[in-house]
Nucleic acid binder design. Structure first.
Length: 309
DNA sequence: AAAGTGAACAACCGCGTCTCT
DNA sequence: CAGAGACGCGGTTGTTCACTT
C-alpha cells in the first residue's frame, strides 16, 4: 500500500515563493504560531503543501535567522560537529544559532567540502585523502551510527529512562583563537525508557566496542574526548542532590574565569544568547577552561537538545 | 554582447519516526 | 497493538546569478 500524498498536488503551487505568499505565511504564524503544517496552508489561504510552508518558514522566514556569510569560527565548528555527527544536519544546526540545517548542508556541499579537499582531507571521513582506509571508514560509520542510535533511543526517553553519563571535553581550535571546550564529567544523556543498564550493555556492545567507538571519534577528531559511562537516571536524583552536585561542579571550576560561552566563542559577545554567567564547564583534571560546548549547560547533556531548538 | 559554465541556494521528494486513535 | 496521519530529516533537483570565454 502506497503512502498517501501529503497534499492535493493538483491544487498547490510549486517553485519559488512570492512576496505575497511569504507575507501570508508570516502573518498567519505570527497570529497562530507554528505547527499543524498540514492544515496551515488552507487556514492561511495559501495554495501550498504544508511541507512547503514549513520549509519556507524554517529556512527563510523565521525571524531569528542569522543570514549572511559563515564566519571562520562557524566553519571550524561545523567541521568538528560533522566529524562527530556525520550528516546530521539538524543536530549540527542546533548548535549554530540562527543557522538552519538546509543552509548548513548547502554550505557544506559548496564551501566546506572543497575547503577540506584543499587541505587534503576527505570530507566524508575527515581523514587525509592519501590514507587508504578500510578500517577507518568502518569506524567512521560505526561512530556515526552510534550517535544516531543515541539520538533515536533518546527520542523515546521518559521518566524511567536509564541515563548515560557523558564526559565530553572538546577543544575547538580556530584561526584566531583557541577555545577549550569541556563539560562536566557528569554530563548526562537521558536514555530510552525501556533500556535498563544491563540491556544497555547488551545493546551497546561490550567494552571493547565501546572503546572502538571512543577511539574512532578521537582518531578523527583528536581534540574531542567522549567518555561513556553509566550513571543512575537523573530522575532518581533528588532536586537537592542535584543542586548540591551542580554547586560542587561550579565551585571546582571557580578558577576557570577565562571561559567563554558558546555564543561568545562565535564572536557574538553581548548577544542576548550569551550565557557566560552561567558557564559550568570544567574538566576532570581542572586544567582546561571550559565553555558550554554543545549546550551542555549544568552538566546535563540532554541529547534531545542537540536537535533543533 | 552572447553563450557556456559553475557556484550558490531555495525548494522538492521520499522515507523514517512519532503520535494519535 | 495496528494502522493512518503528521512531522522532520537528509538527499537531490531546479533555478538564478556571476564569471569566463
Amino acid at each position: 500500500m502506497g503512502r498517501s500524498p501529503c497534499c492535493e498536488k493538483a491544487h498547490t503551487n510549486k517553485g519559488a515563493w512570492t512576496k505575497e505568499e511569504d507575507d501570508r505565511l508570516i502573518s498567519y504564524i505570527r497570529a497562530h504560531g507554528e505547527g499543524c503544517w498540514r492544515s496551515l496552508p488552507k487556514a492561511a489561504g495559501l495554495l501550498r503543501c504544508g511541507k512547503s510552508c514549513r520549509l519556507r518558514w524554517i529556512n527563510y522566514l523565521r525571524p531569528d535567522l542569522k543570514r549572511g556569510n559563515f564566519t571562520e569560527e562557524e566553519d571550524e565548528l561545523i567541521i568538528k560537529l560533522h566529524s562527530l555527527l556525520g550528516n546530521k544536519w539538524s543536530l549540527i544546526a542546533g548548535r549554530l544559532p540562527g543557522r538552519t540545517d538546509n543552509e548548513i548542508k548547502n554550505y557544506w556541499n559548496t564551501h566546506i567540502r572543497r575547503k577540506l579537499l584543499n587541505r587534503g582531507i576527505d570530507p566524508a571521513t575527515h581523514r587525509p585523502l592519501n590514507e587508504v582506509s578500510h578500517s577507518h571508514s568502518q569506524s567512521q560509520s560505526q561512530s556515526h551510527s552510534q550517535v544516531l542510535h543515541l539520538q533515536n533511543q533518546n527520542q523515546n526517553k521518559n521518566q524511567e529512562g536509564v541515563t548515560i553519563a557523558v564526559a565530553a571535553a572538546a577543544s575547538v581550535s580556530t584561526t584566531t583563537s583557541t577555545v577549550i571546550a569541556a563539560t562536566t564529567p557528569t554530563s548526562i544523556i537521558s536514555f530510552a525508557p525501556s533500556i535498563k543498564q544491563e540491556q544497555y550493555h547488551n545493546h551497546y556492545h561490550n567494552h571493547h566496542q565501546e572503546m572502538m567507538i571512543k577511539g574512532s571519534v578521537l582518531e578523527r577528531c583528536p581534540d574531542l574526548n567522549l567518555e561513556l559511562t553509566i550513571s543512575p537516571p537523573r530522575q532518581q536524583e533528588s532536586e537537592e542532590q542535584f543542586k548540591n552536585r551542580d554547586r560542587n561542579n561550579n565551585n571546582s571550576n571557580s578558577n576557570n574565569n577565562n571561559s567563554l560561552c558558546f555564543v561568545c566563542s562565535l564572536g557574538l559577545q553581548n548577544s542576548k544568547d550569551c550565557s557566560c554567567d552561567e558557564i559550568v564547564g570544567n574538566s576532570s583534571d581542572g586544567k582546561a577552561p571550559a565553555y558550554d560546548f554543545l549546550g551542555l549547560k549544568a552538566g546535563v547533556w540532554d541529547y534531545k537538545g542537540l536537535e533543533m531548538k
